[in-house]
Write a protein that binds this DNA or RNA. Sequence first.
DNA 1: CTCAACGCTGACACCGGTGTCATAATGAGG
DNA 2: CCTCATTATGACACCGGTGTCAGCGTTGAG
Lengths: 338, 338
Amino acid sequence: MKKVTINSVATYAGVSKKTVSRVLNNEPNVSPATREKVLKVFKELDYTPNPIARGLARNRSFIIGCLYDNPSKSYITRVQSGALEACHKHRYNLLIHPCELRGNALLENIEQLLQTSRLDGLVLTPPFSDSKELVNFLKRKGLPYARVASAMTEDESISVRSNDEQGAFELTEHLISLGHTSIAFIKGHPDHSATELRFSGYKKALASHGIAFDSKLVAEGNFSYHSGADSAKTILDLKPRPTAVFASNDYMAAAVLKLATQRQLKVPEALSIAGFDNAPIARHIWPGLTTIAQPVEEMTRLAVEQLILSITEPPESVFQTVLEAKLICRESTSEVKK
Amino acid sequence: MKKVTINSVATYAGVSKKTVSRVLNNEPNVSPATREKVLKVFKELDYTPNPIARGLARNRSFIIGCLYDNPSKSYITRVQSGALEACHKHRYNLLIHPCELRGNALLENIEQLLQTSRLDGLVLTPPFSDSKELVNFLKRKGLPYARVASAMTEDESISVRSNDEQGAFELTEHLISLGHTSIAFIKGHPDHSATELRFSGYKKALASHGIAFDSKLVAEGNFSYHSGADSAKTILDLKPRPTAVFASNDYMAAAVLKLATQRQLKVPEALSIAGFDNAPIARHIWPGLTTIAQPVEEMTRLAVEQLILSITEPPESVFQTVLEAKLICRESTSEVKK
DNA sequence: CTCAACGCTGACACCGGTGTCATAATGAGG
DNA sequence: CCTCATTATGACACCGGTGTCAGCGTTGAG
């Protein structure tokens, strides 16, 4: 099976390679007859252009990079899935690049990534989407990027996020409506802007229902299951024990549930537990976790799609999109026992 | 910041670009003095070769593709992690490509992947690593590939797997040693070769301890949580109810645990449950799941590493590696109640 | 009828590297 | 001292596309 290049097509069709190129790229100024002829030869020879050669000539790689540092596998997978959908739609490919936000080697690491891969653009997921340092670096490099799930508004680049504060507000209101007034809260990782938003939604809901905020009910987590387990211990040891726990994500909520179960504490009868994200684990355990579902795939898909468009077209106007989060009620929350 | 190309380096160093190229690739026949000089200019100008141009000249992309179709996010993430490690070590990048094994569009899909990305090689994870059709297709195309976690031995290509049968044998023996004689089994997805291996390990362990195999105790799953939930229903409705359940992966085991808990069936007192894979969920739930841990990252890392080496060097001799699986005991299994 | 404008096409350089080969310089052997 | 093998180097074509520009035949306005 010998290679079919643009030259063979040109020879076979009896035109110049430039004309073939024009047909390939749907450029104007090709007569319908010629276009037909070339297209027919494409089929006959089963020709597909070499993206590498094309990339060299156009200084493009047709590859988008995806940066993440996130303990949640399901989150990562959802991000990848959304990004891939957008990439494939535009005949781009996706290169994944997990790395650590902390660690002074970040910029060197990214630098090397850019050199070995010549990405056309980069999708930043939390916590990278909140890193000013990184964003400025990319701006200096002139590399297009899009931010997912970031609340950083100073940077007017492509950004798609969901309404974390509103989600947290609704979830807290849900608990309040069930009669809870002593609701513990486990915060997420301080590097993620969602952490403050969710916390803020929690506080605002308390305030709007006249419940005093109590900092003793707040534990510092970092989105990992492990940190949730630590926080759970602190919270369940409180006297009096809160009647509900709102963890900033489902993994930490699962950790609370595990400890409660170990301690023979009935959930939700003796303790209501709520999470955030609607991760798979939320429905894989008993009782299932009441949580907030975010359209992660959709967010990433939109971000990548806008990113790809911005690469080819001048970024006339940039949209900062905010999608809705949705409350999902399962068995882990119930009315407070009188 | 203007571009630094091989030409600028050559001019600046006062040598030809071919000599620069030689230094770049560590080729012989460059005098130490010249080499020094060129290397110094590399530093001074902060030069890095353009992988796309290099790729065009050498007909290489320095990209490895990773194919998967697996419901387990944690498995996918582990696979990616191992693959990335090997890629980065050799300055390759990783392109992910989830797709469906079923669906007649598979080969077309792969074909298009190859055309839009010009991969240098492909890592196949289950169930693709077991697909003869795909393997033959890749052979025809002349695309190097490596198989992960496949028991298909007819194909003598690079393959790294863990000892599924041995793992299942040990896990079953563990249950038997706890006094269980009525052990239900939930099978995995029929497309995965691991499914038969784990089943076989289970049967061999029964046989070696003189316990009669009972096909009524076997349920058909497909590795998904959902299929585990269905199987759980079947098994827990059996009369007499088995005293232990061995699910072919942790998600299905978690589903059994969920149903048991819902039915107020104490685990492990009234029912022992064991899984396979040591997925995160195995330790995120209570009681934690007794399971078999496989070195998934290591398997993939080895596979990709061999794959990359085989691309540059003629594949003198191909290794089929088998790594050990390890029993991990948690709280979900205990002595059978007399 | 003339000439500018336009549509279509191909020649050619170029993207940034690598492969092939010729040539000059050096050193060993007779 | 001459011959031949060996090392060091560069000229040049090439990988497979795209951008620029010039040339040519048509067309339409004046």
